[in-house]
Write a protein that binds this DNA or RNA. Sequence first.
DNA 1: TTAGATTGACAACGTGCATTGTCAAACATG
DNA 2: CATGTTTGACAATGCACGTTGTCAATCTAA
Lengths: 220, 220
Amino acid sequence: MQDRVAQRRALLLEAALEAFGTRGFHAVTVREICAGAGLTERYFYESFKSLEALFSALYLQLNDQLKRATLAALIAANASSSAWDSSSRIDVLAGAALRVLLEFIRDDPRRARVMLIDAISISHDVQQISGQITREYMELTRRFIDQLFPNAASRGVDLDLIASGLLGSNIHIATHWVREGLKTPFDVVLRNCLAIYQALGAYWPKLAASTMPDKPTPAA
Amino acid sequence: MQDRVAQRRALLLEAALEAFGTRGFHAVTVREICAGAGLTERYFYESFKSLEALFSALYLQLNDQLKRATLAALIAANASSSAWDSSSRIDVLAGAALRVLLEFIRDDPRRARVMLIDAISISHDVQQISGQITREYMELTRRFIDQLFPNAASRGVDLDLIASGLLGSNIHIATHWVREGLKTPFDVVLRNCLAIYQALGAYWPKLAASTMPDKPTPAA
DNA sequence: TTAGATTGACAACGTGCATTGTCAAACATG
DNA sequence: CATGTTTGACAATGCACGTTGTCAATCTAA
C-alpha cells in the first residue's frame, strides 16, 4: 500500500527533524534515524537514497512551509496597506514577513539548525539547493526594496548586496536568538529586526539622491 | 629539535587551510592533510590530537590575524577622526573595519569557508569557540554603536540584537561575495556594507528619541 | 483456513577511516 | 667511525557505519 510508504516517509522526516535539528547533520547516522522513527533500516532505503537525500527532503519541506506562510502573510499585509506611504509599508510588509520567520523558528527551533546552519555546510548537492533557496529569498527581498524605492539602484547602490545584507542580518539574529535559548522576548527581536529595515528605508532616499562617499574611507 | 616540530605544525596548518578552505571540514581526512603537507601521519599526531583540534587551531589562527588587523586599522582610523561628527566617524571607523574584513576574505577566500561557514557547524567544542569569537565581534560592534550613539539603548532598542544583525549582514555579504567568485568589485561591496551602517547611524537618533512602533504590525 | 505479501529484528559484508606499530634509511653527534 | 635519534613509507589493527540479506512472525485477502 502506498499510504503506508508515505506514512513511513513522514515518520522518517519527523525523526530527521529531531536528529538533524538537535545534533546536526554530521553527527547523525542512518541507524539513529531509523531508531527515532521506530522503523528498520530497510524502510529508510525505501524512501531515501542516502542521509543527504533525507536531509534535502527535510530542508525543502521546511522551506516550502516557510515560503508559503511568508507569501500568505505578505499578500494579506499588502492588501491592507496598498495606499500608504513608504515608511508605513516597510513596517507592515517587512514586519509581516519577519514575524512569520521568527514565529517559524520560535515554534520549533530545530528548524533553525537545519535551515540556517547545516544546510550551507553539507555536500555540494545540498549547497546547490541551499544556494538556490537563498537566491529566492534574496530575490524576494530585492524586489521588495526595489518596489519601495524605485530610484534606489543608482550611485553605487547594489540592490543584491543590500538584500543579501538584510537577509544575513535576519539569519544571524535568528540563529543567535535560538542559541541563547530564545530568552530574548519575541517582540523585542522582531522590533529590532524591523528597525534595520526601517533604517534603510529612511536612509534610502538620501542615499540614492545625494552624496555617496566615492572614496570609501581608506584605512590608516 | 623544537624548530622542526613548529615547522611541521605550520606545514599542517597550511595544508589545513587548503583542504578545509576548499572542500570543507567534513570532506577532509587525516591522510589528505598529511599528503597536502608532505608529511606522514605520525607528525600529524605529533602536533594535533584530532582533525577537530587542527581545525580549531586554524580557526583561532585566522581569527587572531583578522582581529589584530581590525584593531590596528580601528585605532589608526580613530586617531585621525576623533573630533568629527557622528556620521563621519561611522564612515571612517566602520569603513576601516569593513575594509580589513573584506580584504582578508578577498586575499584568501579559503578563509571564508573556514571562518564563516564551517566553524559554526562542526562539533560542540568548535561551536563553543566559534560562539565565543562571535560574541567578541558582537561586543566590538556593540561598543562601537554604543559609543557613537549613547542614547540609543532605549525604547526597545537592543544593542546586542542590532550588533548581531550588522555582523550577520557583513558575514552574509562576504560569504555570498566569495560564492559568486568575487566578481563584484571590492569597492562596491565595501560601499554597500558600509551603507547599512550609515543607514542605521542616520536613523538612530530618530529611532531612540521618538516613536518606535509599539505594536509591531500584526500580520493578516 | 491458507497462500502470498508485508513487517520487524537483526546478522553479515564491505569499506573507509583513525590510530598505532614496524623497520629500514638518513642524519647528527660523540 | 659508530651510535643513538630522527625521518619516511607503509602495514596492521580496530572501529563505526552504510548497505544488503536472512528468516520468522504478522497481516491480508480469497
